[in-house]
Amino acid sequence: MHELSIAMSMVEMAAEEAARRGCAQVCAIHLRLGPLSGVVREALLFSYDVACEGTPLEGSRLVIEDVPVVVFCPACAAEQTLASVQRFFCPACGTPAPQVVRGRELEVVALELEQ
């Protein structure tokens, strides 16, 4: 369960960014989360509220955008979206496709700030 330390880094980062921009409050953090990030969505949401307590982010929302796993299929020479992280085979032609293009994201993309 490393989600709490990850939530705390996000909160710290957002508070710094808000302070830098002269904003008193962060209303929301928008996060892109891939299934291969190693972070569990539910655990992160739970940890987020705990991490926000007593910070300028108290009461803020964590908005998670789930990123699918996209691989490069060497046979199709194209990017393909996987239906399951248990099967790294091209959904179109069945070729093994170990090359991950997207799906490892753990990235804050935007903040909702109040002046």
Partner: peptide, 18 residues
């Protein structure tokens, strides 16, 4: 006078330090 929250793009990997 507040115009409500504004959305600011940041794009930062949470594990960037690591």
């Amino acid at each position: 006078m507040s115009s409500g929250p504004r959305l600011v793009e940041v794009r930062q990997n949470v594990l960037k330090q690591n």
